[in-house]
């Protein structure tokens, strides 16, 4: 087990290198001199040359790459052209906002999606199954921006139950510690603010949860149906085990394996920053941060933002693989 974990973790290193190389060249493949683009057509030759030099773009690419990697290894992501601040510091609040929202959305999606899939499979062809699967079908093809707007209209404007947008009540701002507000309000012991944060999370996380929830429910159902046909499930029944335990112990552990892949993929997609949802709900997340950087041609920010999102993707993949190994004893031996 341990050797598998070590091997799997070490495998991440070349992947990270490869990815950094791809991102590096991707940014440099954008046509035109970035300094020129940033400064505009009317800029003087001297100004462009100065900025080119400042960005290090006058050096050969391998020198640039080594510097860039060297910086990364020290946790240095460069500086934002727009603000002049170190990106490594500037980016965290945005990333934290996205992490909080994505994890809340995935929690909802997994709890409801997995259980709906299980019950649909258990009571195949029942009214529950039909309704859940019709909803899931609608869910996967739901335009999320529209759903978000409808949520706001119903729950905020008409019913006035929940705030329309943002992460916090501006009249009662939160003192950031980790920038994960659920954690921060708990750390400072302010339960009022904690509930405010929860209320702000409800609508955007429900909107974001919709598609993953629908995909997870469908995947869980089909995987469960497959597993429940297997011989070892018949054995479990023949022992006198109740359907509840047959389903939630013997079937689920086997059926969840392919679902984990989907959960990992969907988490990665959400963490990549759901720009549309973040925009509708004025959520100050990483998606908005990068989007704004694109508008300003802030190349170092774009580069670092993409790098971080890709890194998160790779690590989620790693976690999923390690979970496989924990769940399935057969993996360690081959």
């Amino acid at each position: 087990m341990l050797s598998y974990v070590v091997r799997r973790v070490l495998m991440v290193i070349p992947v990270l290198f490869g990815m950094s190389l791809v991102v590096f060249f991707m940014i440099r493949a954008i046509p035109g001199n970035p300094a020129q683009v940033i400064l505009g057509q009317k800029a003087t030759k001297e100004a462009v040359a100065a900025l080119t030099h400042k960005l290090g773009l006058d050096q050969p690419w391998y020198v640039q790459y080594v510097k860039y990697i060297g910086g990364l290894l020290h946790g240095d992501l460069g500086e934002s052209i727009r603000t002049g601040a170190p990106i490594a510091e500037e980016i965290w609040p945005y990333l934290a906002a996205t992490i909080e929202l994505s994890l809340a959305a995935m929690l909802i999606a997994v709890i409801i999606g997995v259980n709906a899939g299980i019950i649909s499979a258990w009571f195949q062809n029942s009214w529950f199954d039909y309704i859940a699967m019709v909803l899931a079908l609608i869910g996967v093809s739901m335009p999320i921006f529209w759903l978000g707007l409808m949520e706001q209209w119903l729950f905020s404007i008409q019913l006035d139950w929940l705030p329309t947008s943002g992460r916090e009540d501006v009249r009662n701002p939160i003192e950031p510690i980790t920038h994960l507000y659920l954690v921060d309000t708990l750390l400072s012991g302010n339960t009022d603010q904690f509930w405010q944060v929860v209320q702000h999370l409800v609508l955007p996380s429900m909107a974001l949860a919709t598609i993953p929830m629908a995909i997870i429910a469908r995947m869980t159902r089909s995987s469960m149906l497959e597993v429940m046909k297997s011989d070892y499930i018949r054995t479990a029944r023949a022992k006198g085990l109740s359907m509840f335990w047959v389903v939630y112990k013997h079937s689920l552990k086997n059926a969840i394996i392919p679902v984990l892949t989907v959960i990992g993929l969907q988490t990665g997609l959400l963490l990549g920053g759901a720009i549309l949802t973040e925009t509708i709900f004025s959520w100050p997340g990483i998606g908005r941060y990068i989007y704004d950087a694109i508008g300003y041609r802030d190349y170092p920010v774009i580069q670092s933002g993409i790098l971080i999102i890709a890194t998160i993707f790779i690590f989620i993949n790693l976690i999923v693989d390690l979970l496989y190994a924990i769940i399935d004893p057969r993996i360690k031996y081959n």
């Binding site: 070892y232 054995t235 479990a236 086997n254 399935d328 004893p329």
Partner: peptide
């Protein structure tokens, strides 16, 4: 049952 290879839960 007939199939000892698949009659036990692998996990």
């Amino acid at each position: 049952f007939q199939e000892p290879m698949t009659s036990l839960n692998p996990l």
